[in-house]
Amino acid sequence: MRDVFTLSLIASTIRLATPLVLAALGGLFSERSGVINIALEGKMLAGAFTAAAVTYAADTKLGMGNASPWVGLLGGLVAGLFIAFIYAVSCIRFKADQVVSGAAINILMLGIPGFLSGAFFLSSGSTPQLPKDHLLPQSPVVIAITILILVALIWYVLYKTPFGLRLRSVGEKPEAADAAGVSVSKLRYSGVLLAGMLAGIGGAYLSIGQSSLFTRNMTAGRGFIALAALIFGKWRPVQTLLACLLFGFTEAVSIQMQGAVKLPSGEDIPVQFINMVPYVLTIVVLAGFIGSSRPPRALGVPYQKEK
């Protein structure tokens, strides 16, 4: 077990946790405003595919060279924003059931990347390989600092600004917020759109940071792990970051071990059990076995103004 904790494992934990942190913090804005976000997976897929496709286009068609991954990142952000906009209109404007719409977005985004890459790249669901030097920075130190700044910023916005206060109040007691003159739907729109942007960036980091192309269903459930981290982190920024690091660590271990982890006693832990850890922990925490994890009070309830 000792050789598990190497420097390379820490580095890969940070790298693997990055998309989770971005998506989970996005989900935080949306859920704190009272809108459930099981569509994080779909938004990440949108971001990942668009980022890879845009980077490729910027690189080969426009010859933007080193700038192309940044254009791609912007593309991923916009894609996440676009999907979030559809989701927001459906849930907020038309008061559709949030879980159902979220499931619809996820199913839709399983299809769209394959559909578009079949048409644009004549491939079955992946984008062309990008050159190694036209990717987002991967140095764990740079990423770690960026993430820490982001978490600090989000903490500040959520707890120290009027916007954050209103956002949280809309997620807890929308009637009271409405009575105080706060526009419930405006705040929920901003919560959901922020979630889309951050999940889109998270997806982009998967395709043009951690790897160098988009492949079919490349998020492989990371949107749901991000959701799990958000719940495990009790809907709070710092705890959510720690949860993402923990889940990133389990993923890093399962990749590094490629099969089974040897215990000092000589027994194997199959990789399947390591993969289960985030999900089991989330169920345990949600049931209140380790501390209690209470969702925002108005989570999932469309706001209907009294007449």
Partner: peptide
């Protein structure tokens, strides 16, 4: 993939 796309839009 169009099948998945249609399915998603129908649910939406």
């Amino acid at each position: 993939d169009i099948v998945q796309v249609l399915q998603g839009i129908i649910i939406l």
